[in-house]
C-alpha cells in the first residue's frame, strides 16, 4: 500500500465542509416537515372515500414508493427544466425528497391510524368526550407512539439520500466534498471525512430522537 494520506488540506477546508453539512441538515429537515404535512393530507385523502382525492393520493404514493430517488431528482431538475421550469439544485432536491417522504409517510400514518382499535374511540365517547377530545387525548397520542420510529428512520433516510444532490451540483455535504476533492486530488481523505460527518449527523439525530421519545412517552417505548 503506497497511498499517502494528507489530512491537512481537509482540515483547512473544514469550514466549507461544515457549511455543506449544514445545508444537508437544512434540506432534510425542511423535506421532513413539508413531507409530514403533505402526508397527513394524503393519508386523510386515502382514508376518506372521496374519489378524486383518493385517486391523487394513491398515484402519489405508488410513484414515490416504486421509482428510484435518483429519478425523482432528475425529473425535478432536468425534467421540469425541459418545460422551462428551472429549479435551483437546492429546490429540485428538496422537492424530490418532499415527494418521496410524503409518499412513504402517507402509508406510515395510515397504518398507524388503522392500528388503533375503533373501540378506543367508542370507549372515549362513552366517557362523554367530544370527538376532538377523543382524537387529541386517546387516538393521536397512541398513533404517535407507533409512527415515531418509522418517522425517525425516514428522516435519517432523507439525510443520506440528500447526498444525491451531488448529481445536480447542489452544495450540500456530498457536493461540497466532490468539489473540494477535485481541486486538491485528495479524494479518499475528503470522502472519508464526509462519511464520518454523515455518520455523526445520523447518530446525533437518532440519539436526540430517542431522548425526545423518552420525554414524550415516559419510558414506554
Amino acid at each position: 500500500m503506497d497511498y499517502e494520506f494528507h489530512w491537512n488540506i481537509v482540515f483547512q477546508n473544514m469550514p466549507e465542509l461544515l457549511n455543506g453539512a449544514f445545508v444537508t441538515l437544512h434540506v432534510s429537515v425542511l423535506a421532513m416537515l413539508l413531507g409530514v404535512v403533505i402526508a397527513i393530507l394524503l393519508a386523510i385523502a386515502k382514508m376518506n372515500n372521496s374519489k378524486p382525492f383518493c385517486y391523487v393520493a394513491t398515484v402519489w404514493v405508488e410513484i414515490a414508493r416504486n421509482t428510484p430517488a435518483l429519478f425523482q431528482i432528475y425529473m425535478a431538475y432536468f425534467g421540469l427544466g425541459a418545460f422551462g421550469i428551472h429549479l435551483s439544485p437546492y429546490v429540485a432536491v428538496l422537492s424530490a425528497l418532499v415527494f418521496i417522504n410524503a409518499g412513504y409517510l402517507t402509508e406510515t400514518f395510515r397504518g398507524g391510524f388503522q392500528s388503533i382499535p375503533t373501540t378506543q374511540y367508542s370507549a372515549s365517547k362513552s366517557l362523554g368526550m367530544t370527538s376532538i377530545q377523543a382524537y387529541r387525548y386517546i387516538i393521536l397520542p397512541q398513533m404517535l407512539r407507533r409512527i415515531y420510529h418509522p418517522m425517525t428512520n425516514q428522516f435519517v433516510w432523507s439525510i443520506l439520500m440528500s447526498s444525491l444532490g451531488i448529481l445536480v451540483g447542489m452544495s450540500e455535504l456530498s457536493g461540497t466534498t466532490q468539489r473540494l476533492q477535485s481541486l486538491s486530488f485528495r479524494t479518499l481523505e475528503f470522502f472519508i471525512v464526509a462519511a464520518v460527518m454523515y455518520f455523526i449527523i445520523t447518530k446525533l439525530v437518532l440519539f436526540s430522537s430517542s431522548l425526545l421519545a423518552r420525554r414524550l412517552f415516559k419510558g414506554e417505548i
Binding site: 382499535p117 373501540t119 378506543q120 367508542s122 370507549a123 365517547k125 362513552s126 366517557l127 362523554g128 368526550m129 367530544t130 386517546i138 397520542p141 397512541q142 407512539r145 412517552f217 414506554e220
Partner: peptide, 20 residues
C-alpha cells in the same frame, strides 16, 4: 349527546383501557 353520556357510564366486553 356528549353531555348526556356523562350520566351513562358504559363498560364493554373488551375492557378498552387506554394503554398509553
Amino acid at each position: 349527546k356528549d353531555k348526556l353520556r356523562q350520566k351513562l357510564g358504559m363498560v364493554f366486553q373488551q375492557w378498552n383501557s387506554f394503554p398509553h
